[in-house]
Simulated assay, not measured.
Amino acid sequence: MADAALLSPRDPAWTEALDRVRHDIYHIPEYVRLDAGLTGGTPVAFRYDEADRVFLLPLLLRPVPDTDLQDATSPYGYPGPVGSEDAAFWSRAAGMMRELLCTEGVVTAFARLHPLLAGPHEALAPAGTLLNHGETVSIDLTLSLDELWSQTHRSHRNQINKATRAGVEIVFDDWTLYDTWIDTYHATMRRVGATDFYFFGTEHFHNLRDALADHVHLAVAALDGRVLGGNLFFEYDGMMHTHLQSTADAPIHYADKLLYHAVRTWGRERGNRIYHLGGGVGGSADSLFRYKSQFAAGRHRFHTWRVITDPSNFEKLAGPPTPESLTGRFPPYR
């Protein structure tokens, strides 16, 4: 017997499904609930069951302006579907998700797939559009320290050594420095011209720490008592992810390079398997991707999944689907 449902974060069926499959911090209800607070969306998870198999995808439901409709999108990060690794099962789950969301007045669904969690992602294509955006970078923490160092580009190695000689120190989980680090984060966002979305407030940062507890960590680079920057990162089931990194406006003495090196060393010592740095903006092979790629050789394909759940209302909002509307900004009416 098959069963499909949309679950609230309070429903124990959400965590019960996660207990049965490999997943990451982006899938837990505490993270999805917190992320929903940034946009005013409603946190849910689509769950599909067949016998002993389960499929789960976290989503945020958002009202479509000037309508009584909704659309669904991924929380920030990589909360793609997880489940029993059976392609035919995933295909049926995707079809059921499209049908259920349509009955709930949801016009489209957009999901970022998880680069590290292998699954039969190609089975999602019949229900929507699977788009390859490029690669992300990871560090294999099962390698020796010498192997990690040898995979680091020569220029990064030189600058890490310069930061060390300058006296830059990396401090882990000193939360008395959190608010000062938040100031450097906001300075970074102003410097790069980030959109309003990325100016997360101080309250959100403190709620993040409270919600994720021992799964969120802070590495701060300091010199002579001045915070040069820091790395807020996640640690969950042997996987680490940089969540947000920042640097101060003043000279930072290559603290950004030393931070990545110190965090990977810290993670390796704690027995983690992989440290995911992410990719370029939108998955592109831009300067940010090249910067990250000079720390390690690990590469992973990054995909998004775009689903039209209600074709009739989609056409009213955006016109007939075209290759451009399915592969560009999605949904196009946003």
Rank of each mutant, 00 (worst) to 15 (best):
D3H: 14
A4I: 03
L6P: 10
E16S: 11
R22M: 02
R22Y: 00
D24H: 03
Y26E: 08
I28T: 11
P29N: 08
Y31F: 15
V32M: 05
L34W: 09
G37Q: 06
T39A: 07
T39G: 15
A45R: 06
L59H: 03
L60Y: 01
D66E: 14
D66N: 12
A72W: 01
P81N: 04
S84G: 11
D86I: 00
E99Q: 12
G105V: 02
V106Q: 09
R112D: 00
R112K: 12
P115V: 09
L116I: 08
G119I: 01
L124R: 04
L124Q: 05
A125M: 08
G134M: 10
E135N: 06
L141A: 14
S150P: 00
R154T: 12
A166D: 14
F172P: 09
D179R: 13
D179A: 13
A187N: 11
T188P: 14
R191V: 03
D196H: 13
Y198I: 04
G201E: 14
F205C: 04
L208N: 05
A211D: 03
L212M: 07
L212I: 04
V216I: 15
H217P: 11
L218R: 08
V227N: 04
L228S: 06
G230R: 07
L244I: 13
A248K: 11
A248Q: 09
D249W: 08
P251N: 05
L258P: 05
W266R: 15
G267M: 02
Y275I: 11
L288E: 05
S293H: 10
A296R: 04
A297P: 00
G298Y: 02
G298I: 04
R301V: 14
R306I: 01
V307S: 10
K316Q: 14
G328A: 05
R329H: 12
